[in-house]
């Protein structure tokens, strides 16, 4: 306390006009012992930064706590088996049913479809950007891909309704174009930027010696890509695909708008289906807080959170390993 008062006093004390400013500087820091003021300041700043630093961890923890805490109450009314493997979803009937199997299947189907479309195209594009394209073209294409990832999903969903669903309906001669396939195409477009950029990074991160060694052996550019670069970058490419899968499973608005949302296990890609995400977004508005339906939607959230966390953790692990191997 005394120290603080003293340091305040020294600040307040008027300065002699005759002393040169540098002389004052020289004299001002003669005391090499830490002042209380500085100690408290340092301590406070460090603590504040620390608190800001752990917010991400805190939020991640809170997300789990809030979702699980609410979602778990569902199981007072419904068993876990009925929830995960039940085929009937009648949240508002007198004899309510909360089986989410159709949605799990819907989410997995739309994701698989999207991945089947986007992986070959994505890897091909990544090779094009990393190894084939001239620099200018590369810049323009990369920018376009980045913009694609910035387009809001609701805009893509809207186009899915007005353009894509008609195309699907007419091409496959269906009565409705709101199908799992329509969802897969839209989601493929959304997963592409992730897959391309991660795979492109993985290919470009390979040391130049790989290419040189292969060219020196008389291999053509394509042979080098096929036999040397792709195998070496495979972990990175797999990680990119996994991140794409994570993004596809979590996507909400676009699938909700183009898949028709029928609660059924689709037998083909040309039928309507419903995803876990769409169920939450579409029905939360109709629920009563802490009612069974409300809790059920939170339980779906937990299922989603677990799925995406597992996928993302695996892909980060693969990516981490790829980076270590690269070094």
């Amino acid at each position: 306390m005394k120290g603080i008062l003293l340091s305040i006093l020294t600040i307040v004390k008027p300065r002699g006009e005759s002393v040169s400013p540098r002389k004052k500087l020289e004299n001002s820091s003669w005391n090499l012992t830490k002042s209380y003021k500085n100690r408290i300041r340092e301590f406070l700043i460090e603590k504040i930064i620390f608190i800001l630093g752990i917010t991400a961890l805190l939020i991640m923890g809170l997300i789990f706590v809030f979702l699980i805490q609410t979602g778990i109450r569902l199981f007072e009314d419904v068993s876990l088996g009925q929830f995960l493997f039940g085929r009937e979803w009648y949240p508002n009937a007198t004899n309510a049913r909360f089986g989410i199997l159709p949605m799990i299947v819907g989410s997995i189907m739309v994701t698989m479809g999207a991945i089947l479309i986007s992986v070959p195209i994505g890897i091909g594009s990544a090779i094009f950007i990393a190894e084939v394209a001239p620099p200018k073209t590369k810049t323009v294409f990369k920018l376009t891909i980045e913009f694609l990832s910035a387009i809001p999903s609701v805009v893509l969903g809207f186009l899915g309704i007005v353009v894509l669903s008609n195309w699907v309906r007419i091409s496959f001669n269906l009565s409705s174009g709101f199908t799992v396939l329509t969802g897969s195409i839209v989601i493929a477009l959304m997963a592409l930027p992730t897959i391309i950029s991660v795979a492109d990074d993985a290919i470009r991160a390979l040391p130049g010696e790989y290419r040189e060694a292969s060219y020196a052996l008389g291999a053509s550019k394509w042979e080098t890509i096929k036999n040397v670069l792709l195998p070496a970058a495979s972990s990175g490419i797999i990680a990119g695909v996994m991140l794409g899968v994570g993004r596809a499973i979590g996507e909400t608005m676009a699938v909700m708008m183009v898949m028709g949302n029928a609660v059924q296990i689709p037998s083909t890609y040309l039928e309507s289906g419903r995803t876990l995400t769409a169920t939450i977004a579409a029905e939360m508005g109709d629920t009563v807080r802490n009612g069974t339906h409300y809790n059920a939607l939170f339980a779906i959230g937990v299922v989603l959170l677990i799925m995406t966390s597992v996928i993302n953790t695996i892909s980060e692990w693969v990516l981490h390993r790829a980076q270590r191997e690269g070094k």
Binding site: F66, G246, R247, G250, I280, M284, F298, S309, E316
Partner: peptide, 20 residues
């Protein structure tokens, strides 16, 4: 790890979290 995982949490789950 938390930062990486947050980046992968579906947006609708953020919605549930915000609601709760």
């Amino acid at each position: 790890i938390a930062v990486l995982n947050l980046a992968g949490v579906p947006s609708v789950v953020y919605g549930l979290f915000g609601l709760g």
